[in-house]
């Protein structure tokens, strides 16, 4: 062995995308207090998302939704041993700088908060901390990856308990990937133009048949069966926002969703963990939401 200390490289692409790989097959849960964070870790959350209000409350209360109080984020980091994520507004690079200074493990540049810039997203290459971003289709996912996102989640329609939008987005992304796979090389130039995404990323997806980063689903997941369906549709894992702590029995529901995510292809396990969970979040049908209140339409 040598005595020299070889250089250590921090914040590389591989290191940023790598943490998302470690989260695969897991459930990331929204929490608004250290107590909820403790419940989430004890139930088997693979990471927690620290925020001040869950999307259902942001919806109900209205107003501008911003980054959480640093005191709250630090208290949640102090409480748990699993990774802690926190949300910055779309385009709000200073909120992202603050979250990095607070030592969060991942930043979610999130449409659940009010956008701070209606033109630009954050230049995520400038950060050591990795970012996850939402996408409703493949072009949007590749634009975010081009800006430095190290993980993608489908957007769904957060805070509704209605999983139909999450289903639509994961199906859309998967089917667009399948279309690319069947194209010849010369067709990929036009495909890149139509997807409004860089050609090199489009060519990479066409040849590998998958996104270059981990893909989770989010938005409206409220039951073990919802989570298992997202996994069967090809997600690498799930985010559960309001679905846990807006339900009758958060501890049991959280643990059930974790188990259903691992045994997503085993209906007998999903049936077993779905028994006696009590009331799921009441929810809102996405069709009843007037267009200006649809969060998935934020970001581009």
């Amino acid at each position: 062995m040598t005595d020299t200390n070889p250089t250590q490289q921090f914040g590389s692409d591989r290191v940023k995308r790598g943490l998302a790989k470690m989260l695969k097959g897991g459930v990331i849960m929204d929490v608004v207090t250290p107590e909820q964070a403790r419940i989430a870790e004890d139930a088997g959350a693979v990471a927690v998302m620290a925020l001040e209000r869950v999307p259902a409350d942001i919806r109900a209360q209205g107003g501008v939704a911003r980054m959480s109080d640093p005191d709250l984020i630090e208290a949640i980091i102090a409480e748990v041993s699993v990774p802690v994520m926190a949300k910055a507004r779309i385009g709000h690079f200073v909120e992202a700088q603050v979250l990095q200074a607070l030592d969060v493990d991942y930043i979610d540049e999130s449409e659940v908060l009010s956008p701070a810039d209606y033109v630009n997203h954050i230049d995520k290459w400038q950060f050591t901390v990795p970012f996850v971003c939402g996408a409703t289709n493949l072009g949007e996912a590749l634009r975010r990856i081009n800006e430095g996102a190290a993980m993608i989640r489908s957007k769904g329609e957060a805070g509704t308990g209605d999983v139909s939008e999450a289903t639509k987005h994961i199906r859309q992304i998967t089917s667009e990937i399948n279309t690319l796979k069947s194209m010849t090389k010369d067709e990929l130039y036009v495909a890149a133009k139509e997807l409004q995404a860089p050609h090199d990323l489009v060519a990479e997806v066409a040849s590998t048949g998958k996104l270059p980063v981990v893909l989770f689903t989010a938005g409206g997941v409220a039951t073990p069966a919802d989570a298992a369906m997202m996994m069967q549709l090809g997600a690498d894992g799930v985010f559960v926002g309001s679905g846990i702590f807006k339900s009758g029995n958060p501890e049991q529901r959280a643990a059930a969703i974790v188990k259903a995510t691992t045994f997503y292809d085993d209906p007998s396990v999903i049936a077993e963990v779905s028994r006696g969970l009590g009331e799921a979040m009441v929810g809102i049908n996405v069709g009843d939401l007037p267009a200006p209140h649809r969060l998935a339409e934020r970001g581009w």
């Binding site: 062995m1 250089t7 250590q8 921090f10 590389s12 980091i77 990774p83 030592d103 969060v104 493990d105």
Partner: peptide
């Protein structure tokens, strides 16, 4: 988590 948060994750050469 002996090195700390994700900011302390790294790559290096190892013998």
């Amino acid at each position: 988590n002996a090195f700390g948060s994700q900011l302390e994750s790294f790559e290096t050469e190892l013998s």
